[in-house]
């Protein structure tokens, strides 16, 4: 049961050729978790698949990576399928990518993993509501999650939506000057490594706005003003698209609280448009669509 079932299922779909590539989690040594990419020529590696509290990566980011894509969808054979070991945010990101025409629904085989026990407590659980919307897109959902102990769960828990909401409420109670000071401190330390962008499944532009140099819309200099432009623009571009997986904040080497920024956007979109990103493969993010009956009273 549990992880064994997932391993066997993964091996089966690779063996019978239904998928060409499976992306999951494996041990990386020194306690690290690494993404695993398994093709039909090395099915035995499926026995090394894991799922525990340390598995935070949103593996949907690999769906669009060229080398990885070549493993399942060569230019010649477009019928290849890719399977993902997908926790709730991974599924939601994948659905978002389908909705935004980045990947075809029929190319994707989602093996949902619904954390149990300590794994669930460490976040990445998803509500009943989330799962009832997304389960139908999954080939199968596995209740799985090995407790590797330690304080990982606790360390991850500050990224849970409720915790973030508490922090946001506290921030909103501050004066605009204090808030500005808070974000100044954060943005001043950004070194412009772009890990936040690269780890995000939804930052899929082939040329990022910050790389456009004629004209240079966003300064690539990691000064306070350049960093303000970059971080705010990135947040704006993710409104209604970000699924809140928290990977950008985790990847940021400088500890910028991008999770707070994005969580606030998620809340606003929920409030104003009753929309939660990635719960369906059909609904487009609200800010990327236009309807004649859209609310227009903000135009003065």
């Amino acid at each position: 049961m549990g992880i064994e079932e997932l391993r066997q299922y993964a091996a089966n779909i690779l063996r019978d050729g239904r998928v060409k590539l499976l992306i999951g989690y494996g041990e990386g040594g020194d306690g690290r978790v690494v993404p695993m990419f398994i093709t039909a020529t090395e099915i035995e590696r499926c026995s090394q698949l894991i799922y525990d509290q340390r598995c935070t990566y949103n593996l949907s980011v690999y769906l669009l990576k060229a080398e990885i894509k070549s493993l399942w969808s060569g230019a010649v054979n477009l019928s290849g399928k890719v399977a993902l070991v997908a926790k709730v945010e991974t599924v939601r990101s994948a659905l978002g990518l389908i909705a935004e025409n980045q990947i075809k629904k029929e190319d994707l085989c989602l093996l949902g993993v619904r954390g149990v026990g300590a794994v669930a407590a460490a976040g990445a659980v998803g509500t009943e509501g989330d799962w009832s919307s997304i389960s139908s897109y999954c080939e199968r959902v596995f209740d799985v999650g090995e407790d590797v102990g330690g304080d990982i769960g606790e360390k991850n828990s500050h990224r849970l939506p409720e915790k973030l909401d508490q922090e946001i409420d506290a921030l909103l109670k501050k004066s605009p000057e204090e808030r500005l000071h808070f974000w100044r401190q954060h943005f001043a330390s950004c070194i412009r490594c772009y890990a936040c962008r690269q780890i995000c499944p939804h930052c899929f532009c082939s040329t990022c706005i910050v790389e456009k140099s004629m004209p240079q819309w966003v300064s690539p200099v990691s000064s306070e003003s350049g960093n303000f432009s970059w971080n705010i623009i990135r947040a704006y571009h993710l409104v209604g698209r970000c699924v809140g997986c928290g990977e950008c904040a985790r990847a940021c080497p400088m500890g910028l609280r991008l999770d707070l920024l994005n969580r606030y956007m998620v809340k606003m979109v929920q409030e104003k448009y009753s929309f939660k990103a990635g719960l369906s493969a059909e609904d487009k993010p609200p800010l990327t669509t236009y309807h004649l009956n859209d609310n227009q009273d903000f135009i003065k």
Binding site: V34, V61, Y62, K65, C193, Y194, A195, Q198, I199, A251
Partner: peptide, 11 residues
């Protein structure tokens, strides 16, 4: 395969 092309390692 897993490299995402962020520049963290270099920075």
């Amino acid at each position: 395969y897993s490299c995402l092309g962020c520049g963290v390692c270099a920075m």
